[in-house]
Nucleic acid binder design. Structure first.
Lengths: 200, 200
DNA sequence: GGACACATGTAATACGTTACATGATTTT
DNA sequence: AAAATCATGTAACGTATTACATGTGTCC
């Protein structure tokens, strides 16, 4: 039984927590999330539900009463088992390891920019991170009541990451003062460059 | 000019920092990274290089001297410009926003598990995170010399994230003590199950 | 000169995104 | 009853993954 993808695992979890629900309810869950990770696009969810059903992880019942032609999905025993495996240790390396971070990626290339633009980058990043902190924070407050302790814990985790990132960006801002000059723009033959970093 | 994907942006940055390099050199860069994000699989890189060249972002010169049939890639002015845009503010929302984190995702569903397994989850996660902290830390030390200040900053950012995650997991461990019973497993009518979960 | 890592690819497959299409329900 | 929004899909497209295929240098 192949392990589920992140999205699939999350969908199984959502269905399980809801007891049973429609594809759209699953979508709404993602659409409501303040994390940009989950787009909840229709083209992702509906085919995914079909896939899960074909694999015997969920089953559906037509919504006879008063509704559209939507279906109510719920976990099968197989789906329940797979969900439990997905949640249980040992957690794969990429789950516990350094999470991807597009901001961090970009910082690695800051040497390319001239110093003034480095400053602008960090300032912009700080502003963006702080804006998102406010969003996540108010989302946490506003929906405190209708969330499980685990969902609140998740939100606090998200906040903690943003906070750590902010601290790190401030550190970066300090380091930029003492930074070396940017690398020259062209790689051509004019090889007599001094004190370049990291070609090859 | 469509903005590059993360992988494309990173590749442009790597080529730029190298001056010029082969596809394999780019791959090696990813393969050497301690972050699980970058697989650096051949099937990702080689087609990507072709794509970038077709779009006029990089150009290649056959490696005549002594080498295999590989090509040396370098940025075109267009590629250089796109790279600069990729790095410059305003940074899109999903770049500054909460980064995705598979561990955080799973924690949101911890309510599904019985308390004993929650403990196991958090313990396993903590162990994994700490193991990774050691990996990243020793990688940071070992290659301190041949890295730019920005790459070191990146590594420190990764470490900072792991540290924040560890603190958050410890908090989670404390909360588990005072946690509610798991939600019932089946939404069905045979509702008179008591406090069991995950038998299916 | 055989083994083994290095280096360069290709093919099949799976998944998510955007954009489009359409019917059902509610609002005005 | 027209407009808006809810809900359910579908199609085209791009891109990453795994697995395979193959040539090339090095070392023992």
């Amino acid at each position: 039984m192949r392990p589920p993808s992140e999205l699939e695992g999350a969908v199984l979890g959502i269905i399980r927590q809801a007891g049973s629900c429609t594809a759209y309810a699953v979508r709404s869950h993602f659409l409501a999330s303040p994390s940009p990770q989950w787009s909840g696009s229709a083209g992702a969810i509906y085919p995914l539900m079909e896939r899960l059903e074909r694999r015997g992880l969920i089953r559906s019942k037509a919504q006879t009463a008063t509704r559209r032609n939507g279906r109510l999905y719920s976990l099968t025993p197989r789906g329940s088992r797979l969900l439990a495996e997905w949640l249980a240790p040992p957690l794969p390396d990429w789950v516990v390891g350094v999470p991807p971070d597009p901001l961090r990626t970009r910082v690695g290339f800051l040497g390319i920019l001239p110093p003034a633009e480095r400053q602008a980058f960090v300032a912009g990043a700080l502003a963006g991170v702080e804006a998102h902190m406010r969003i996540v924070h108010s989302d946490l407050e506003r929906r405190r009541a209708d969330r499980s302790p685990w969902e609140r814990l998740t939100a606090r985790g998200a906040l903690a990451m943003l906070k750590a990132r902010r601290a790190w960006l401030r550190l970066a801002a300090r380091e930029i003062g003492a930074a070396p000059a940017p690398a020259p723009s062209r790689p051509r033959k004019g090889a007599s460059r001094q004190a370049r970093d990291r070609r090859d």
